[in-house]
C-alpha cells in the first residue's frame, strides 16, 4: 500500500524535544529575558537590594493581574478592552467601603468587591453572547460604562485604604526577598490550575481554538465565552484590589493604562491573540519585565518618560520577530 502522511511509529525523543521547544519555548524565552534584565539591573545598580525588589513586585502586581485577566478572554478567542476600567471600579469600590474600617471588615469588603466585579465581567460576556456584537465593540462601550461608574463612586483620587489591608501586599512577612506582593500572585495558580484541568477550562481553550470544532465537540459556546469573561472580571477585581493594597489610594482614572499594558504583557507573554494558545506563566513574567523597564531607566539616570516609548518599541520588536518568523517560513 502507498505510504501516506500518517506517522504511525512511536516518535523518537528528538521529536518530543522539538515539540516541547515549540510549545514552551516562548515562555522560557520570556523568563530568560526577565532574568537577563535583572542581571543588567544589578550590574547597573550594584546595591540592588530587597527594597528595590519589593518595589518591583509591588509595581508589577496590579499589572500581572491585568495581564492574567486579559489572557483569560484572549484564550477564549475574544478581547476585553474594559479590563482597566474594571480594575479601577474594584479599586474605588474597595476604597469607598473600607474607609476607616479594620482588617476583618476590609476582607469582607474585598470579597464583595470580587463578587461585584466578577459579575460585571460576566455582564460583558453576556452582552457579547446575547447581542452577537463583536467583543471589541462591546468592551469598548462597556469600558465607558465601568469608568463612568468608577467616577460616580469616587470623583477624584482619594487615599484611605486601611493600613492593615495594605500590608497584606506591602510587607514581607516571611523574608525580605519574598515580599507579600509575590505571595499574593498565588491567587492566580489557585484559580487557574483547577480551571485549566476542568472541562470548563478546556472548553474555554476550545472556543478560542476553533469555534466550529468546539461546537461539534459539544461545547456550549455561549457559556464558555461568558465564563471566560467572568473569570476575567474576577482577575480584574484582584488587580483593582492589588492596586488598593499597593498604593493605598482609590484612583477612578487608573483604567486606561492597565488595559493597554495588559495587552502588551500578553503579547510579550506569548499568548496568541487569535485565541486558544498560551498560558498564564508568560504574561506574568511579561508584567514584571514591563514594570522593570522604568526602574532600570531611573537607575541609569534616564528620563522615565522614555519608559512608555521603550515599552512600545519592545512590543513592536517582539511582535515583528514573531511576524518575521512567519515571513521567513513562507519564503
Amino acid at each position: 500500500m502507498a505510504s501516506t502522511a500518517v506517522a504511525e511509529a512511536p516518535r523518537p525523543a528528538g521529536f518530543r524535544f522539538g515539540r516541547a521547544a515549540r510549545r514552551y519555548g516562548w515562555t522560557v524565552a520570556v523568563y530568560a529575558l526577565l532574568a537577563l534584565l535583572m542581571v543588567i539591573t544589578i550590574a547597573i545598580k550594584p546595591d540592588y537590594g530587597s527594597f528595590e525588589w519589593n518595589t518591583l513586585t509591588l509595581a508589577a502586581l496590579p499589572l500581572a493581574f491585568a495581564a492574567v485577566a486579559q489572557t483569560m478572554v484572549v484564550l477564549s478567542g475574544g478581547i476585553d478592552l474594559s479590563v482597566g476600567p474594571l480594575m479601577a471600579l474594584a479599586n474605588v469600590l474597595a476604597l469607598r467601603a473600607m474607609l476607616g474600617h479594620d482588617l476583618n471588615y476590609s476582607l469582607v469588603v474585598a470579597l464583595i468587591v470580587l463578587l461585584e466585579v466578577t459579575l460585571a465581567g460576566a455582564l460583558n460576556g453576556a452582552i457579547i453572547v446575547v447581542t452577537r456584537v463583536p467583543d471589541i465593540v462591546i468592551t469598548l462601550a462597556t469600558s465607558f460604562i465601568w469608568a463612568g461608574l468608577a467616577l460616580l463612586v469616587l470623583a477624584k483620587p482619594t487615599p484611605g485604604i486601611p493600613l492593615d489591608f495594605q500590608n497584606l501586599a506591602q510587607g514581607s512577612t516571611f523574608s525580605p526577598w519574598v515580599p507579600n506582593a509575590l505571595l499574593v500572585l498565588l491567587v492566580i495558580p489557585l484559580v487557574w490550575i483547577p480551571l485549566r484541568r476542568s472541562r470548563a477550562g478546556l472548553a474555554i481553550y476550545a472556543v478560542g481554538s476553533d469555534r466550529n470544532a468546539a461546537f461539534r465537540s459539544g461545547v456550549n459556546l455561549g457559556w464558555s465565552r461568558l465564563l471566560a469573561y467572568a473569570v476575567c472580571g474576577f482577575f480584574a477585581a484582584c488587580g483593582g484590589l492589588a492596586l488598593s493594597m499597593t498604593t493605598g489610594v482609590g484612583t477612578p482614572l487608573a483604567g486606561t493604562y492597565y488595559t493597554l499594558s495588559g495587552v502588551s504583557a500578553i503579547v510579550l507573554g506569548g499568548v496568541s491573540l487569535a485565541g486558544g494558545r498560551g498560558g498564564m506563566l508568560g504574561p506574568v513574567a511579561a508584567a514584571y519585565i514591563l514594570s522593570l523597564i522604568p526602574a532600570v531607566l531611573i537607575y541609569l539616570g534616564i528620563d522615565p518618560n522614555y519608559g512608555q516609548m521603550i515599552q512600545g518599541v519592545l512590543i513592536v520588536i517582539v511582535v515583528m520577530i514573531g511576524g518575521l518568523g512567519v515571513v521567513l517560513r513562507r519564503a
Binding site: 495587552v263 502588551s264 503579547v267 515599552q311 518599541v313 512590543i315 513592536v316
Partner: peptide
Amino acid sequence: LIMTLAMGLV
C-alpha cells in the same frame, strides 16, 4: 491591534 497599540505608546 497590537501594532497600533504599541505605536501609540511609542
